[in-house]
Design a protein around this nucleic acid. Structure first.
Length: 587
RNA sequence: GCCAACUUAGCUCAAUCGGCAGAGCGAUCGCUUCGUAAGCGAUAGGUUAUGGGUUCAACUCCCAUAGUUGGCUCCA
């Protein structure tokens, strides 16, 4: 497949960025321009502007861009010396900074010019602006954004204008429709429509409150995983929400991630931390007894709620919160058991994803960034851990990619990256191999040789955080959960009050069968159907005198499929089977 | 945390130039009893996010605070 960097779209978007910069400079002659690369689906350009930009500015710039495009101006490339480049960009301090850097590296310096605009740029570009489609781009589709110069929060805050650009008007339309679809599925919108969760300023931002219907989904997921874990030899443990600061100093969490933790709580002269992670607690349980190699592997599992002080601007719905529950487990194993145990964990994660119908995922091994100092542990331990992960993946025949700098601070990890129905990627399950914490906590087991040995730890979480995971599920299913997960599985819709008593007893009967059921009594039948469909309830069970007479329900699905009148027993048996199999189908 | 926009009834949104705060849905109460996408009527619901300021007069202009959103940075 052609690399994006080599594609025509890439050149189109890159050129669009230049056209936008020209139009912006015409409107804001005193603007300082920074950089303007192509990105996925479009491009951006960063500006230092004399005043905040308005919608009118954007509309005018977009209009002017169309004019520039229609001028069919050629893009001309020129190689220049550093001094010449400095003369060209005399008044552009960001460009001068870039030129100094390029000069320092002895790099070739090139500029591209179209019409009246010359930019420091490596290219490539389209031949001339005539190759751009004036009806296939937009810069007004997205709000302007703030962005730090060079991505450094200590440097200037610039104004970033995003654009999206395509070859044809049709492609642009499709893209905008995809964005619209994503907006419609937003779990924050669906979450309140479907009464799954809410937030309260009085409770605090980033602290979700689960409403009864959301709590049901959460509870089902927990029970599902818990049950599967018991089958696979995990032992449940429970640990408190705070612990002495000393614990996290020992683990290394405190100094390394001080900024993203809540301030310690002072109690009787001792300091306590709201727990940012569960692992140190589980380690203490391990350490409560002398362990023999015969005891290993030990697998401790806990739905552990942790608290992290995320920057306020980072919070978003359920996907980024300050208090969340990790479907955590820690496996303590001998070095010999490591690869097999790792494989077992990967198998569990794949099992869980498949059960949920999340089939489109890839694996990524996150390794240490050798340049960074945010890691604990010695290089040889890291090397060992990374090799163990690669060995396990190879044994599994798992396709994976490597991502440097994506490791946890105590060890490398394998992440499962899921692609939802809108083809957006989300990082879900994660498995980490850790030689470091056993070292820091001086963990031991007695080996066959009657001597102490150090166990290896595996950290793992198939869902990651329940909050985030459910947020993703909501968007993936567009709020229409599979039957076994649906907060309400059946809506009973009596055709009139005359059969409400019968509807009531049907509801009771179905509840006794273990279904989550609600009777709708407001308004006429049509109204009840609308209400039930808005709540995305899988089965709409219409009950009228004819059904009462025949012992049937008239079953309609939330997607409008009409299954007709079905004997109640038959319907119950069928629905039970679908729940049992965690089927994604309703019929 | 930083840049920007936004915040009006439970929800979605109106309110012209600074001049009487409104609608739909929902809720409540009636009436209607109806077979597959919204039956009819009435009533209640507001310190226009909060606090200050300007003005004869503020939903509207200014400042601060909180929250939300789009980004940036961050994400064990």
């Amino acid at each position: 497949m052609e690399r994006y960097e080599d594609s025509k779209l890439y050149r189109i978007r890159h050129s669009m960025a230049h056209v936008m910069a020209q139009a912006m400079l015409e409107r804001f002659p005193e603007a300082q321009i920074a950089i303007g690369p192509p990105i996925e689906d479009g491009f951006y350009y960063d500006f230092d502007l004399p005043r905040p930009i308005t919608e009118e500015d954007l509309a005018a710039v977009e209009k002017r861009m169309k004019g520039i495009i229609k001028g069919k101006h050629p893009f001309t490339r020129r190689e220049v010396s550093a001094d010449e480049a400095r003369r060209i960009f005399t008044n552009q301090k960001y460009k001068l900074e870039l030129i100094d850097e390029l000069a320092g590296e002895d790099a070739l310096i090139t500029t591209y010019t179209q019409d009246t605009f010359q930019d420091l740029c490596r290219g490539p570009h389209v031949e001339d602006t005539g190759a751009l489609n004036p009806d296939a781009f937009s810069i007004t589709f997205k709000e302007p954004a703030g962005a730090y110069w060079r991505g450094d929060e200590k440097r200037e805050m610039l104004t970033r204008i995003y654009g999206t650009a395509w070859e044809t008007e049709e492609d642009l339309k499709d893209h905008l429709e995809r964005l619209e679809e994503a907006r419609r599925r937003d779990h924050r919108v669906l979450g309140s429509q479907l009464k799954l969760f809410t937030f309260s300023p009085l409770v605090g931002k980033g602290l979700p409150l689960w409403m009864p219907r959301g709590a049901v989904v959460r509870d089902i997921l927990e029970r599902f995983l818990r049950q599967e874990q018991i089958k696979r030899g995990y032992d449940p443990v429970v640990t408190p929400h705070i612990a002495r600061l000393e614990l996290y100093k020992t683990s290394g969490h405190y100094p390394y991630y001080k900024d993203s933790q809540y301030d310690p709580i002072n109690v009787d002269g001792d300091e306590f931390l709201l727990k940012p992670m569960n692992c140190p607690h589980h380690i203490q349980i391990y350490k409560s007894e002398v362990r023999s190699y015969r005891d290993l592997p030990i697998r401790y599992a806990e739905f552990g709620t942790v608290y992290r002080y995320e920057q306020s601007g980072e919070l978003a719905g359920l996907t980024r919160v300050r208090g969340f529950t990790v479907d955590d487990a820690h496996l303590f194993v001998t070095p010999e058991q490591l690869v097999d145990e790792f494989i077992g964990v990967v198998d569990l994660i794949q099992y869980v994803f498949n059960a949920l119908g999340l089939n489109d995922f890839r694996a990524r091994i996150g390794t240490r960034d050798p340049e960074s100092d945010k890691y604990v542990g010695t290089p040889d331990l890291w090397e060992k851990a990374t090799r163990a992960i690669i060995t396990a993946c190879d044994k599994l025949g798992l396709n994976y990619s490597l991502a440097e700098g994506e490791a946890a601070f105590y060890g490398p990890k394998l992440d499962f990256i899921f692609r939802d129905v809108l083809k957006r990627e989300w990082q879900l399950g994660t498995v980490q191999v850790d030689y470091t914490l056993p070292e820091r906590f001086e963990m031991e087991y007695i080996g066959e040789d009657n001597k102490p040995h150090r166990p290896v730890m595996i950290h793992r979480a198939p869902f990651g955080s329940l909050e985030r995971f459910i947020g993703i599920l909501i968007e993936h299913f567009n709020g229409a959960f599979p039957l076994w997960l649906a907060p309400l599985q059946m809506a009973i819709l009596p055709v009139s009050n005359k059969v409400e008593d019968e509807a009531e007893s049907l509801a009771l009967e179905l509840k006794n069968e273990g279904f989550r059921v609600e009777m709708f009594s407001k308004g006429q039948l049509g109204k009840k159907i609308v209400e039930a469909r808005l709540q995305k309830i899988p089965y709409l069970l219409v009950l009228g005198p004819r059904d009462v007479e025949a012992g049937t329900v008239s079953v309609r699905l939330r997607d409008d499929t009409d299954l007709g009148a079905i004997p109640v027993d038959e319907f119950v048996a069928k629905a039970k089977a679908l729940v049992e199999n965690r089927s994604l189908e309703l019929a």
